[in-house]
Design a protein around this nucleic acid. Structure first.
Lengths: 175, 175
DNA sequence: GGAACTATTGTTAGAAG
DNA sequence: GCTTCTAACAATAGTTC
């Protein structure tokens, strides 16, 4: 049991590094779960393991159990008040996003929308972290985005974004 | 200093709960950083604090310091090999996304693209978690997406997505 | 090759400044 | 509000089975 203090640096030994990951991962996700439970807020974690093509996230995407549990817990304390806060909270975030967008008026740069879509899908599951209240809308949106990208894949062609009633604006090209 | 074992449950006392959050947050982010450093992989965490309209994430979005540090560390060990693995890894994920998309061929459902964009921007900073190698492309893409949404806001009108040379497809409406 | 163990290091709840 | 302190609790590195 000789365990010396570990130096916070890349573990050079391959097996040690690999063996460490699941332990640490469990620790990280547990911490996220503890914050989630103790403080009643949405917290999440993600790990891009080289040993798994799918990024591992907490809360889990498939089952949504932690979120459900979350509301169950809150229901016994102050559910209504919490939902109100959540709404205020989201409103603040949207206002902030608005301001951010107004700062972004710039030159007409080319957009590789496809890349964005891919990236969106890759991190799409993270949107669950955005809040329990968005859950039903989320599932729909993710599917719709899939449809949108699917259209792109079918077309295998140039993608154009148009503002109705205005002038056509070319946004990007396919791969 | 009487500290009894804490029950893993919502902290009802408001000030206790609020005081707990920064400590726990530090702990969570530290764990993410440790995995990132020790195991040489991309790991991240996010907290949607009710006390802050901006979600707090690790790694930080502004400075990109942790990522830089990451490569600095790896450079001394096996940078080339790691980058190769990263590429393979990304390729796997893209293949996976492709399969996911093919499963999504469905009916023509309406897409509220604006919602997606908002959500993308809200979680956009999380894309940094997708990998260090995407860093330069990422900054550009986020700006371009901002531009795209900006156009939308300017138009205050219906958004149409068109596949060039094909039939026009109506995708969604503004709020 | 993963589950269990445990000495040791690490984290944090509550209090105090 | 925020640091700091520290007893108590928790996580885990190295090892064993």
């Amino acid at each position: 049991m000789t365990r010396r203090k570990v130096k916070l640096a890349f573990i050079v030994n391959n097996s040690s590094r690999k063996n460490n990951l699941p332990k640490r991962k469990r620790g990280l996700f547990k911490k996220a779960y503890e914050i989630f439970t103790l403080c009643g807020i949405n917290a999440g974690a993600i790990i891009y393991s080289p040993y798994d093509p799918t990024p591992e996230v907490w809360p889990s995407v498939e089952g949504y159990e932690p979120s459900d549990y979350y509301f169950l817990e809150l229901a016994e304390i102050d559910r209504h008040n919490n939902m109100f806060n959540q709404q205020e909270f989201v409103q603040q975030r949207i206002t902030k996003a608005d301001k951010l967008l107004l700062k972004k008026k710039k030159d007409n740069r080319e957009v590789n929308l496809m890349e964005d879509m891919y990236r969106f899908l890759q991190i799409g599951q993270l949107t669950i972290l955005a809040g329990v209240h968005t859950k039903p809308a989320l599932a729909r949106d993710l599917n719709d985005l899939g449809y949108l990208v699917d259209m792109y894949l079918n077309s295998r062609n140039r993608l154009i974004l148009i503002l109705e009633g205005g002038s056509d604006v070319e946004i990007g090209e396919s791969l």
